[in-house]
Write a protein that binds this DNA or RNA. Structure first.
Lengths: 223, 223
DNA sequence: CATAAAGTATGCTATATCTCATATTCTAAC
DNA sequence: GTTAGAATATGAGATATAGCATACTTTATG
């Protein structure tokens, strides 16, 4: 993890990503730039999260751990998006675990100095509301729709989103839980992809050989 | 539909439902009380919706119509909740169709006079954000979890929420679509409930005979 | 290093759910 | 009122997915 507060750097990035349409100007002086490398952790689970992040580049996995100690993949966060809104709004006191899937760049606002500014910034709050409203709408709609299709389709979509540089190597147990399918059936479908030449197994990894095939399965669902 | 702007009435209701924790005081003078009877329409689909409603009592069904003219049940709205946030935030320009399932009472803020007050009211925006955040979180979580259970469970939950005074009489075609299950399978499960004596068919209606049974099926899912 | 726990892998059976076919009401439009 | 289009109803066969058993690997832990 790398923090930059260089005025130059900060201002350029804020410009590019239209900071002023998302936050009021008063917040600009507090912005830091946090960058993370692939596989790095953005937050430790269970600990309070002292920033509001606006992720402008990259992709991350968000995890949650249950009472029994089991860890579950909760969602994929893709730029541009917020991270840490939940604890800012005090919907969830503790952070979920977040891991970078690719190199990530965030505009970071330290809550220590910005919390009350944020909670009184109508530009920000309007944006947040709009984003959350869209999320709530999309999320359940897409999820519901996707369940009308066989697992093959959902899995194809998942492989596309989680593979990086043509290589899929998620843990089967975790994915099965995330996609609400039995481990057995996931393996079965995976095998089927291999037989069809869509994926190729190489040690622990699966190489995507027929991208188009997966995309077609995904797009069938989306409308 | 009945509109009241009697100061008495408005103030009493606002007091009871903690208006001041949800909106700033400046909005108080604009509040109207709108009441609807069971089966009445709160909004015509496709038309702009000129109010923000805060529903303090009752339950409603929200519908959407697709390009092809098919109408779909989208969600159940239960007090306390907002109606019309989407068009306020301009996420969706036109209203969905909303039908009262029971008698409904709403605090209504006319957008003509209140729109910009609302969009600059940090108390309101904070609340809206929090509610939407919780919705986004819950919705997908519950939905996902529920799909891990057989249809019987989801259906039981649906019957409980949609029945009024112990009578279930939704259209099977519509429900099948809403619950993402085939019409055939829905009928099959319904029949099964009848055979088990949980429901009793009476003309077009189904009388709930064994509430506890349905509740148990529902609660199995919820955790 | 040894052992336990977790992940991977595969086969078989059971079941939830879908698809299609077909008949019978109901409802709305002319 | 007649007729077309929905909605209801039921049956039989197909398939997607779950469940269980079992074996082998990898990873963590003492």
């Amino acid at each position: 993890m790398l923090i930059s507060t260089q005025k130059n750097h900060v201002e350029r990035l804020c410009e590019i990503h239209h900071f002023n349409t998302i936050f009021s100007k008063e917040l600009l002086p507090y912005v830091e730039i946090h960058t993370f490398q692939k596989k790095e952790s953005l937050s430790q689970e269970g600990e309070p999260f002292p920033y509001l992040y606006y992720m402008v580049k990259g992709k991350a996995k968000v995890y949650m751990t249950h009472k029994n100690g089991q860890r579950t993949l909760v969602l994929f966060a893709e730029a541009p998006c917020f991270l840490g809104e939940m604890s800012l709004l005090e919907v969830e006191p503790f952070a979920k675990g977040v891991t970078a899937m690719e190199d990530i760049t965030c505009l970071a606002l330290p809550l220590a100095t910005c919390k009350s500014l944020l909670l009184n910034d109508t530009i920000f709050l309007r944006n947040l509301s709009r984003i959350l409203a869209e999320k709530a709408r999309n999320r359940s709609e897409t999820l519901a729709k996707s369940y009308a299709y066989p697992f093959e389709n959902r899995f194809a979509a998942f492989i596309l989103i989680s593979a990086s540089e043509g290589v899929y190597n998620e843990m089967h147990t975790e994915v099965a839980e995330f996609l609400n399918v039995s481990y057995r059936h996931l393996l079965f479908t995976l095998q089927d992809f291999v037989v069809k030449g869509v994926l190729e197994k190489e040690g622990r990894n699966y190489i995507v050989k027929n991208d188009a095939f997966l995309k077609q399965l995904r797009d069938e669902m989306i409308d």
